[in-house]
């Protein structure tokens, strides 16, 4: 844990994350998320699937280099069934990479940008975490945190939920975030990217595909 990790995980990092809801906007539109309890279920599901997958990729990216960038990015693609989600992850990755190269210039980030112009967000997150001196477990924790905090904020904006209640919910998820990071870090310690967590979340895939086909949208994803 270091100060750089706090900066990297902070929602105020100007890397475009504020406009992504990670499926929450569509879940609200469908009625699946309508109060703090349903949001809690949504976030737990998200963390156990997309969150764990992102955490594994971010942890693996901390030690990636050379041909490993394209390989890891392909692993991310293989774990992201929905084209809309792939697009959103690549857009967020490209934006994070661009701002990170100005904030934390590092040869590894230049190498990643050259290898994959619009990498998946967790891959960039891990690469940037490494550039700031964070461990694979730190990177995984940032990815897990990111997987629930953005959607939680979107729910506050869309449903007018009590922000303190929602933050209490996030605090309650903290042990699960730690567990997710630990699981992801040990999976990546095995050193084989094909063995990284690959939990599918068909409901999230469907939400993403419905969302992108919706005419009135406030969020990009």
């Amino acid at each position: 844990m270091n100060a750089m990790l706090l900066l990297l995980a902070d929602s105020r990092l100007p890397a475009g994350g504020h406009a992504h809801s990670g499926g929450t906007e569509q879940a609200v539109a469908s009625g699946a998320v309508h109060d703090v309890a349903s949001l809690a279920a949504f976030l737990r599901g998200r963390l156990a699937t997309a969150g764990l997958v992102a955490a594994g990729l971010a942890a693996a990216a901390v030690t990636a280099s050379g041909a490993g960038w394209a390989e890891l990015d392909a692993e991310a693609d293989a774990r992201t069934a929905s084209p809309a989600q792939r697009e959103a992850a690549r857009t967020q990755g490209r934006l994070l990479l661009r701002v990170a190269r100005r904030i934390w210039p590092a040869p590894a980030l230049d190498e990643l940008a050259a290898a994959v112009p619009s990498p998946h967000h967790p891959v960039v997150l891990g690469a940037v975490a490494a550039a700031t001196g964070c461990s694979p477990r730190d990177a995984a924790l940032a990815a897990a945190y990111n997987a629930v905090t953005g959607p939680a904020t979107a729910a506050v904006r869309l449903l007018g939920l009590d922000p303190v209640e929602v933050h209490r919910l996030l605090a309650g998820l903290a042990p699960a975030l730690e567990d997710t990071a630990a699981t992801a870090a040990s999976a990546c310690a095995a050193g084989e990217s094909a063995r990284l967590p690959a939990h599918a979340a068909p409901a999230l895939d469907l939400l993403a595909e419905q969302h992108i086909r919706t005419e009135v949208r406030l969020f990009i994803s």
Binding site: L13, P14, G16, A19, T91, L95, A154, L158, I220
Partner: peptide, 21 residues
């Protein structure tokens, strides 16, 4: 076109990444 996640001022002031992109 850029979507701004309920916060038009954020996208032009605090987090301009999507607009720069």
């Amino acid at each position: 076109a850029v979507q701004t996640g309920c916060c038009p001022h954020t996208a032009i002031r605090d987090d301009i990444a999507a607009n720069i992109d």
